[in-house]
Design a protein around this nucleic acid. Sequence first.
DNA 1: CATTAAATTTGATCTAGATCAAGATTTTTG
DNA 2: CAAAAATCTTGATCTAGATCAAATTTAATG
Lengths: 232, 232
Amino acid sequence: MPELDAPNIRQLELFKEMDGTHFDALMRASYVQNFPPQLELISEGDPSDFLHVVVSGCVELFSSWNGRESTLAVIRPVSTFILAASIRNGPYLMSARTLEKSRIILIPSQDVQAVFDKDPKFARAIVEELAQVCRNATKHTKDLKLRTALERLANYLLTQQKQAGNGSNFSIPIEKRHLASLLGMTPENLSRALKKLRAYGVLVDGQIIAISKQEELERLAKPNRLIDDASL
Amino acid sequence: MPELDAPNIRQLELFKEMDGTHFDALMRASYVQNFPPQLELISEGDPSDFLHVVVSGCVELFSSWNGRESTLAVIRPVSTFILAASIRNGPYLMSARTLEKSRIILIPSQDVQAVFDKDPKFARAIVEELAQVCRNATKHTKDLKLRTALERLANYLLTQQKQAGNGSNFSIPIEKRHLASLLGMTPENLSRALKKLRAYGVLVDGQIIAISKQEELERLAKPNRLIDDASL
DNA sequence: CATTAAATTTGATCTAGATCAAGATTTTTG
DNA sequence: CAAAAATCTTGATCTAGATCAAATTTAATG
């Protein structure tokens, strides 16, 4: 793989503490590729051969059943996806497609596993990362089962606001139809929900959101760290 | 801890391959307790001090927000829970209560982590278990987002049937109100959904289920390994 | 075993959210 | 930049599932 990318990857929690030799070996075994938008990278059911790292761009994880489809997550740089599948050597449970032009590193699962056994620091990092993924999945489920669509949206906006630095203006980083699917609602319903939030001081212009009545929105959303804090 | 339990625990995937000395050390550091039914073992938000292993009985994992509550999983012997929290030393994301009189082993998180660093076999087992938990969470989300309540119920019944040995008769192992919550519906709606399934050859008598038209039910349920197979 | 309490079922009604059908915008592309 | 294709929005309608209230069954308790 090109040396340009390695330093970026090395900064990732997953690779930061590991032995340099092992890191280099992993990188040598890996492939880097640039993908155009809307390309299906993996399909659910396929065997999991690689751990993926999004270096730039954006990847949507989604799943289909009986003609229906749902977005399960949107991955932004720099982070990994399908770690669980590649550890268990099980089939992918989700499909993945690029939403934008994306640069992605593919690390062969068998190399990940080999280094896992040799490098305790890496093993530690893998298990921490995986526990995080696991906990975020739990939070997503709680969000879905305990909240209405309007509440999910309100909390999503507050979370995005926080990530963008707590200013009153920020922009949502994905298309609304994907956001709708992520939040478990239809695009039509998202559109209406955004309109309802005007009463709580939310102004929408395309992807740009302005929050004018912070307290009102928070009173509606009732954000909770055990659901909304991705770092927890 | 009493030696009676150790052999059972040792059989768990999580502990099977690890070094005997390490296993014994873990067991010595652990506590075994018998809990009555309906006892809240842990509350979400609390710091995670122990990895829990259900030896006998049954534990419900649930979560609350804004006065609502939802069952997220039901844990039966012999398996662990809140592995992810104890690895990250983060607060519990779910609460846990016994549904029946239960025998539970509490292994201090710090001991789990210490042995993780020393014993590659154990590290390997932990990461596999965690990946499994992670994948099951993904399946649960897919079930919730891609299926209607009736479809979730139909698939739940087929899964239980399989676990019970594929006979046409079997019994559901939890109260219906918990099942309803697990499937993301109200008890009233579960009751009605079960009635609707009569048209597909499902007969209900208390906890006992009889499936008379296997193919019809499967045509409705459209079971899918990437959602319904817990071992995958 | 009678009493009380809890769980389940049933019926009536309500509502969040889906679906369908057009428009209105925005984005993409020749 | 104009045409075509998406995406987003709005309105009308429909429906899965929730809520409320009451009856019935089942389980727990003195």
